[in-house]
Structures are given as structure tokens and as C-alpha cells.
Design a protein around this nucleic acid. Structure first.
Lengths: 205, 205
DNA sequence: CTATTAACTTAACAGTGTCAACAATTGGTC
DNA sequence: GACCAATTGTTGACACTGTTAAGTTAATAG
């Protein structure tokens, strides 16, 4: 068997370099500034070189999105560390998610908005990053349920979906001021969390 | 004063023709197929002609988005007509919104996803279309509250925001299979509606 | 009929993603 | 050390894109 010119770790390192350059461009000048030409200029290589490491721009953005999901997961993990009660952990987690999204709205938009087709060729890395992020939420919900602080109306996975959907809906409508919010985020965010918790506590009809 | 070559209604008519062509392209081949060149080809005019009616592509897409908001508003209005109880109207309205979004996911994605900057130069037409659509929801929530079917925990406008955020979050995560949904839409959708209603009915803590 | 003016066309610019052909460099084998 | 294969990087090109400027056509007002 013939050895590769670059060892596997070296390839991974170059990928990370390219992603770093792409991320810098993105954070500085937004999604429209992310182009193979500009990335190449930053890395002092030709505009076609990154194609050896990413088959398409979609693939590159997908890798960037996976990074963003790991970032927001970390934000949630950090948030739940400081509180004790599971239901309070859930509150902090949801709040941390929404705060992070509004803190770096462009990054959050990248996670969900600028998408061509995600069904075809789903990146395992991205799927795993999403799964891990949701996992944080699911575990806290399950803990709250086990502690008797949430009724058994719905299973933990479904309940965590509801929280995720509620939080995502709120911040994604807020992010680009895409909606005429008659109410401010600071009042709506705890309202959403409390309403969902109250709804999950309520006995089934 | 000098008369215009086109009367005001004629200008509006031409705008609609351009939007019709753009919409056909969009519905057939997606957002990437919407370009001034392709629109012009469909209208048998030069690729620069539409610039007389839309200052930029963003403005054209904004007009298309306003159309989409009026469309989903109509879907909600149609849905609430068939039920009587306000709380049931609310259920039907939310369900109609989500069903419409999943029925034409690309159109729904256009409404929220493909956006450059919405803050600068906010189109009055789009703002009004959004306001009108939310108004449908707000009125039904207010009616439910007045009928005593919802507690007074939060005001109707805030409550309608919660419904909108919940519904939007659910379908927008579902639309591009952007999330690893461990639970199907058919189970999550009524779950979200019921949980929010139950949460709003619950007494304040 | 003429002059004005709006509607339209053409050409061009500065970008973009993507791919094919070519050069350079590297690493293992004899 | 020399050779060879494979991989990495470069250049050029294609087919697009949004957008603007200059020039053209056509219709209308006086």
C-alpha cells in the first residue's frame, strides 16, 4: 500500500486551517464574505486549493455549522453547571441557548438559515453535533421528570423537542427582526419557558 | 405636469407580471432559479428591464415574501371559519399554519430563511403583511381569553407571540429536516399546541 | 412636428462556484 | 541517491450571478 503525501492528522489540520479562515471572514463580514477566493487569499494559496479538502461550498458551510452547534451545546452545558434543581437547570439551559443565539445572531443564522439541501448527503459530523446538543436538553428534562418536577404528560424526548422548538422559534423570529415583535425578547423569553413548563406540569386532559 | 408613459395601475400590473414569473421559477426550481436573467427570459424582455420595477433582487424577494405571508394568513382565516369555540379556533389556526408550512416548505423557507438584511429599508408592504397575519392569531387568542377559555396569565398579544414562536420553531426545524427529529411532526404538532394552551390556562406561580 | 421622457436594450464590470489540465512536491521502493 | 507514483497546489476557463452606465426606442405633451 502506498503512503499518502499527508498523514491523516495533517489533512485534518489543513481542514481546520481552512475552516478557521472561513470563520474569520464570516464573523467579520457575514456569510456573503465567505468565498473560496477570499479564503484562499487569507491562506496564501490558490482559490482552487480548498477543493482538495471540501468537495463543495455546501460541504464547507456544513462543517462550519457543525462547529456552531458544538459551540451552542457548550454554552448550554456551562449554564446548567451553576444551578442545582433540575427544573432550574432547564430554565438556565433554555435561557443560555436563547442568549447565545442573540449574542451572535449571524452565527445562529448560519446554523439554520443559509441552507441549500440538507437531506442529500447528510454530514455525519453535523448530525452528531445536532444530536449531542439536543441530548443536553433531553437529559435535563429527563432529570426534572425523574425528580417529580415535571408531570408525565409527554416523554422526555418529546418534551425536549418542545423546548427546542419554542426557543428556536422565539430567537429565530427575533434574530433578523424578521417579525414585528410587539413584545420584547426579555419579556417573551421567560414567558415561553414558564408557559411550556406549566403546560408540561398540567395534568393530561 | 408631464404625463407618465405608464399609468400607475399599469406599473402595478407589470410588477405583478414580474412577480408571477419569479414565483413560477421559484415554485418549480427553488430559490436558486430566481434570477433576473431567467425572469427576463420568461417575460421576453432584457435582463435589466425588471430593474425599472424593483431596485434590487432583495426588493423583489421581499415582495414575494409579502405574498407568501398573505397566503399563509388566508390559510389561517379559512381554517378558523369552520369551528366555533374560540379555543378550538385557536387549535385549528395553529394547525393550519403548520400544515401550510409543511405543504409548501420552500415557500415557507422563503418567508424566513433567505434573507440578507431586513432591518435596513423595511418594506411597508412586508411589515403590513406580517402584522396582518399575526393579527389573525391575536384576535382568536383574545376571543378565547374573553370567553374564559384561557387564563389571564399573559396578555393576548404576548400569548399569540408564544403560539407563533412555537409553531414557527416546530415547522422550521422540520422543514429542511434541519434537526434530528426523534419524534414525528404529527405527534409533536398537537403536543405543542396542547402544551401551550395548558400552560396559558395554568394559574400564575 | 418636435422635444421630452419613460421604458427598454446592450455592454460591461466585478464577482461567484466549479472543474479540467497542468506543474510541483512529497514519500516509499529499488 | 534515483526513480516512480500519488497527492497537493496552480492556472485558466466556463457558466453563471447582481448591478450599473450608456445608448436606443417609442410614446406622449405642447
Amino acid at each position: 500500500m502506498v503512503r499518502l503525501a499527508m498523514t491523516q492528522p495533517q489533512v485534518e489540520l489543513r481542514r481546520e486551517e481552512i475552516l478557521d479562515a472561513a470563520l474569520e471572514l464570516f464573523e467579520r463580514d457575514g456569510i456573503e464574505a465567505v468565498s473560496f477566493r477570499r479564503i484562499a487569499a487569507r491562506l496564501d494559496c490558490s482559490y482552487s486549493a480548498p477543493y482538495r479538502y471540501f468537495a463543495s461550498k455546501h460541504e464547507l458551510l456544513t462543517a462550519l455549522r457543525a462547529r456552531a452547534f458544538r459551540w451552542i451545546e457548550q454554552r448550554m452545558v456551562d449554564a446548567i453547571g451553576v444551578s442545582s434543581s433540575p427544573i432550574e437547570q432547564l430554565r438556565m439551559l433554555a435561557r443560555a441557548y436563547m442568549d447565545a443565539a442573540l449574542e451572535l445572531p449571524d452565527r445562529y443564522a448560519l446554523m439554520f438559515f443559509d441552507i441549500g439541501d440538507d437531506d442529500l448527503d447528510p454530514s455525519p459530523e453535523l448530525v452528531e453535533a445536532k444530536r449531542a446538543a439536543l441530548g443536553v436538553c433531553t437529559r435535563v428534562v429527563a432529570a426534572a421528570e425523574k425528580a417529580g418536577q415535571l408531570s408525565l404528560r409527554v416523554d422526555p424526548l418529546s418534551a425536549s423537542h418542545l423546548f427546542w422548538c419554542g426557543a428556536h422559534g422565539l430567537v429565530s423570529l427575533q434574530v433578523g427582526s424578521q417579525f414585528v415583535m410587539g413584545r420584547a425578547y426579555e419579556t417573551l423569553a421567560p414567558m415561553m419557558i414558564d408557559t411550556l413548563i406549566a403546560g408540561l406540569k398540567a395534568p393530561p386532559p
